[in-house]
């Protein structure tokens, strides 16, 4: 049992290192990101990742700057602040929950593309949007899979 556990940890660590290496190879400068989890109503201020949770770890590991400066796990930040920070990459959460309209990632995409301010963000105009499972944004071994997905998406984005 203990051996299987150690093997799993080793495997996760090597996958983590590989994802980080692939991001380092891109030599990203001044690349920023925001993780949008959901919103209580479609148009109101969204829940986004603060600088202490797993999304912040992923951004740190891959050399992305989190535009959110809150210590809360999922603070509510206004679209005004997010749009002005103009992140290079937007990560949105996909989930089966349908408590709020914005739980649906397709609704989030629709908002980003139609809101008169959000659609002007660089990440939206250049279609630099990554969809990740919401589960992988909470602390668990799935974080590594999310890290890999994000790292794999970056080279296609033509980031400087």
């Amino acid at each position: 049992m203990a051996d299987r556990g150690k093997a799993l940890v080793a495997d996760l660590k090597s996958r983590e290192a590989a994802a980080i290496r692939s991001a380092q190879a891109l030599d990203l400068q001044d690349v920023s990101a925001v993780f949008w989890f959901s919103s209580a109503e479609m148009d109101i201020d969204p829940y986004v990742a603060g600088r202490k949770g797993p999304p912040a770890y992923m951004m740190n590991a891959l050399g992305l700057k989190n535009i959110i400066e809150s210590d809360e796990e999922w603070p509510v930040v206004s679209w005004e602040t997010i749009a002005r920070a103009n992140p290079s990459v937007i990560v949105i959460a996909r989930m089966d929950r349908r408590r709020f309209e914005a739980d649906n990632y397709e609704k989030k995409l629709e908002f980003l593309k139609t809101d008169p301010v959000a659609r002007e963000m660089e990440a939206v105009k250049s279609d630099r949007i990554v969809i990740l499972d919401a589960h992988s944004m909470d602390p668990s071994i799935r974080n590594i899979a999310a890290l890999e997905t994000l790292a794999a998406a970056l080279p296609e984005f033509d980031l400087k």
Partner: peptide
């Protein structure tokens, strides 16, 4: 907890979604 945060909108008012 998260539903509760959504409900706060209706109980305390929120103008952030106004277009």
């Amino acid at each position: 907890a998260e539903q509760a945060r959504g409900i706060m909108f209706w109980l305390l008012g929120n103008l952030s979604g106004v277009r």
